[in-house]
């Protein structure tokens, strides 16, 4: 067992990048305004490994696909997830489909790092959590770390994976600290993390909703409700076995997800439970999500929208008492 120490979520991401770039000379970084990194710990990699790009998201995302097709493992820093819409064709039509369309000749080992900036008054065009769109785009893998250890481990796995991976980094967690293993600590895709075991209600949480869910579970334990908190960590592939196994034991499911409600990750997980564990359910499935409105600017408006400790706890109580 390697040593652990406390790192922030943001520090863990950099540690993963630096480790992977040191391990494999085919790993490069592409993104806007990353030239400053050459002054820091990335300096050793030299200018051919860091491509600080002009504001051409469609262009350099497409470039990453071409680089990945021909032997590199690019990490693309897409900074703000709302910018993904500018690069939808290279992501959805190219990265996600080229392996299939070429009959398996192509592999596209590219990583797209996408920041989630909700909750900071960035308003409607900078606050999106668009990962459900990419769950619905076959050929892309989708990872969302909620702890520093997972931020490092999922990124390491993403770089080593031979498929395109979109990794959504919740900037609300950037300064959260937690234990992170020294050295290599890849987290396998398709394995949920059971943060807390419980017997009354299964509470599946995604991104910063994990933090809220764990706080809610503490409150609920004091009320005598035992909550099992699970973070899927990757939405594609999805660890169906762990989610369904928990639902079969508790008979109750709440899903907390900061994405919009309609056709979201929470909807998919709820449907999975309804299809595969209907006989075990003892209450309707509850979703705690963000309503289908463009995210407002005013903190007075925005702060009410996302899954909160209180909102999640209320949903669990309703389901537990059903």
């Amino acid at each position: 067992m390697s040593e652990t120490r406390e790192l922030s979520y943001a520090e863990a991401i950099h540690e993963a990048q630096i480790l992977e770039m040191g391990r494999d000379a085919s790993v490069i970084l592409i993104g806007e305004d990353i030239h400053g990194l050459t002054l820091g710990p990335y300096a050793e990699f030299g200018p051919e490994r860091l491509w600080s790009a002009p504001i051409s998201e469609s262009g350099f995302t497409g470039m990453a696909v071409g680089a990945a097709l021909t032997g590199l493992r690019p990490i693309v820093d897409l900074l703000i997830s709302s910018l993904l819409y500018v690069a939808m064709d290279p992501l959805v039509n190219q990265a996600g489909k080229l392996r299939a369309m070429t009959g398996g000749q192509a592999k596209v080992p590219a990583v797209f790092r996408c920041g989630l900036w909700h909750g900071s008054s960035y308003a409607a065009q900078h606050s999106d959590r668009p990962y459900p769109l990419f769950m619905n785009s076959p050929g892309l893998k989708v990872a969302i770390p909620a702890t520093p250890a997972d931020a490092k481990g999922l990124l390491q796995t993403a770089v080593r994976d031979d498929d395109p991976v979109m990794i959504f980094e919740d900037r609300n967690l950037a300064h959260e600290r937690g234990p992170v293993c020294e050295g290599d600590a890849p987290v396998p895709f398709g394995q949920a993390r059971v943060h807390r075991e419980g017997s009354d209600v299964t509470l599946v949480a995604i991104a910063s909703a994990v933090r809220e869910a764990l706080a809610a579970a503490d409150d609920l334990a004091r009320e005598g409700i035992s909550v099992e908190v699970i973070d899927p960590r990757t939405l594609v592939p999805l660890d169906r076995e762990t989610l369904l196994g928990s639902v079969r034991r508790t008979g109750r499911l709440v899903v907390a997800d900061p994405a919009h409600r309609t056709c979201g990750a929470a909807a998919e997980i709820a449907a999975l439970a309804a299809e595969e564990a209907f006989d075990a359910l003892r209450a309707p499935v509850a979703r705690v999500t963000t309503p289908d409105v463009p995210i407002p600017f005013s903190p007075a408006l925005e702060s009410k929208l996302y899954p909160s400790q209180q909102g999640i706890a209320d949903a669990v109580r309703r389901v537990a008492r059903y």
Binding site: G62, G66, G71, L72
Partner: peptide, 25 residues
Amino acid sequence: SLGETGIVGAGIPIAVGAGLSARVR
């Protein structure tokens, strides 16, 4: 032949990426 695309213009940045890849490699 790295592939063709029915999305007009989409193959152009892919070629630029292949060029970058040749340079890095």
